[in-house]
């Protein structure tokens, strides 16, 4: 078993929280893990990404080679396209649809969505909208994780345990909100029937 995941977004959007949740879940299921993060200057609103590798065998490189990622999980649509050379032939692109526009030359969003849909396997969701309906607008990232969890070889119970561990310091209420968000995302992806061509 091997899952190579690229997490992408804009500095400050909280992709490290998603990475930490997957990391906790991987630890619970006793998988090997390597997770390369971006710290420093890029965190000030620039493009950021994280390489997350899970395996039942020991992992050599902290970085994923080209064409080998099983999943791109992006919390921003344009950023999901930046890492396409890393996506494998059968890999999935799962992205939030809400753009983060902090540059003057942000392209037309329709053009971006069209480009995402050129991939054989993709899932686009409005995580912010789902979070708002859920009554917890801050949980969009965990909704994204829930949706992407369909393509990660970790059982749901381990994700739940991971989220529990990650948020337990913030109280039971926060844990519950995030577990609900995880399932909302996962159910959305299930109902969508995984919109591959």
């Amino acid at each position: 078993m091997k899952n190579d995941i690229i997490l992408s977004g804009v500095g400050g959007q909280g992709i490290l929280t998603i990475a930490a949740a997957i990391g906790m879940a991987a630890l619970e299921s006793e998988l090997y893990l390597k997770q390369a993060e971006v710290h420093g200057m890029s965190q000030r609103g620039g493009s950021v990404h994280s390489n997350l590798r899970l395996s039942d065998k020991e992992i050599a490189s902290d970085l994923i080679p080209y064409g080998q990622a099983d999943l791109i999980l992006s919390v921003e649509p344009m950023e999901s396209l930046r890492y396409l050379p890393y996506l494998s032939e059968n890999g999935w692109l799962v992205t939030n649809s809400k753009p983060c526009i902090n540059i003057p030359d942000y392209p037309d969003i329709d053009k971006i969505i069209k480009e995402i849909k050129k991939n054989p396997n993709y899932l686009i969701l409005d995580a912010v909208k789902i979070a708002t309906v859920l009554g917890s607008p801050g949980s969009a990232n965990i909704i994204m994780l829930g949706a992407a969890s369909l393509f990660i070889d970790i059982a749901v119970e381990y994700f739940e345990k991971g989220i529990q561990k990650l948020f337990c310091r913030k109280g039971e209420e926060v844990v519950k909100v995030n577990i609900d968000a995880f399932h909302a995302g996962r159910n959305y992806a299930l109902n969508k029937g995984s919109s591959g061509k």
Partner: peptide, 20 residues
Amino acid sequence: KVSYGSKVPGFLPERPPALC
């Protein structure tokens, strides 16, 4: 041999860091 995925679309602008 390195097996590249698909290309980054040409229209993608850079997103440099900025003051908050």
